[in-house]
């Protein structure tokens, strides 16, 4: 994979964002939420690497800490979606026909719900919060993941090596865990890594609209929102909120595409 220039770029970008988030406290000593009316709208400089916003908060610190939120939401909710999608997909693909039909119906119903409507509905339910964001992401991702696993499980269900395992007396759990899952999970992991930027965009988008993370907590979407509100006073707030979103999205997309090319079954040699 390291031979692909795009893959290397992807990994570097992802590493940059991850390291920035992990060492946020260390790299940016300023408190991301500390209001300092005297320092409103200071332009980027030595004191404030990325400038400050309308409340005088250090943007560099806010961006790094916003990365923590973005990554936590993206990785956490993707992992949960993966787990749920995997289990439901295996059940639909391997279980009885009626259960499959029922689950497909559920997946389709979930899929046909527009994301924005879903988000609004959940926010009405929970109020603007991180939980709302996570639940939206899970509801949006699960049907697709489950369908992929289901299709492949159905294809493998009658493979000779699966029949062979059954003929040896392997339990359903063992057949699924040892003989089916390892052979269906690859494409899903690739898809999920390509979905991470989408999740980051959802989080940013909801926070931008004020439906996600609540105000004092730093979030890229919230920074962007501040930037738009104050675009006449300062351009750097928008820049500070936009650049990390772009870099992260590109990084994970490149990474996902490279992974896909590397693991493409057609290229799998002897």
């Amino acid at each position: 994979m390291l031979r692909e220039p795009l893959g290397v770029l992807g990994i570097s970008l992802v590493l940059l964002v991850v390291l920035g988030a992990v060492f946020a406290d260390f790299l940016a000593s300023a408190d991301p939420s500390k209001i300092s009316p005297r320092n409103r709208f200071s332009s980027p400089g030595f004191e404030h690497l990325a400038g400050t916003d309308q409340l005088g908060r250090d943007l560099f610190s806010r961006v790094l800490h916003g990365g923590q939120i973005a990554l936590a939401v993206a990785l956490g909710s993707t992992a949960v979606s993966l787990l749920i999608g995997m289990v439901l997909g295996l059940i639909a693909g391997y279980g009885p026909r009626w259960l499959d039909n029922l689950l497909i119906l559920v997946f389709d119903a979930m899929k046909s719900f527009p994301t924005v409507m879903l988000a609004l509905a959940l926010v009405t339910l929970f109020g603007p919060s991180l939980t709302a964001v996570v639940v939206v992401v899970i509801l949006v991702n699960v049907p697709g993941y489950a369908r992929i696993i289901r299709t492949q499980t159905i294809a493998l269900k009658s493979a000779e090596y699966v029949t062979a395992a059954q003929s040896m007396g392997a339990s359903t759990a063992r057949v699924l865990r040892v003989h089916i899952l390892p052979n269906v999970i690859g494409p899903l992991l690739i898809l999920a890594s390509m979905d991470i930027p989408v999740v980051i965009a959802i989080e940013a988008g909801m926070s931008f609209l004020g439906l996600g993370v609540r105000p004092p907590t730093p979030s890229w979407g919230a920074i962007l929102n501040d930037g738009f509100a104050n675009i006449r006073e300062s351009y750097w707030i928008v820049v500070a909120g936009g650049i990390p979103i772009i870099l992260t999205t590109l990084g994970f997309t490149f990474l996902g595409e490279t992974l896909r090319d590397v693991f493409d079954p057609r290229l799998k040699g002897r």
Partner: peptide
């Protein structure tokens, strides 16, 4: 119940490579 008997009765399937689990 069948599991007990399957221990004593072994099956070999038609495809030499396809009947082996690919990731084992």
């Amino acid at each position: 119940e069948m599991k007990l008997h399957r221990r004593r009765m072994a099956m070999m399937f038609q495809d030499p490579i396809g009947s082996l689990s690919p990731r084992q």
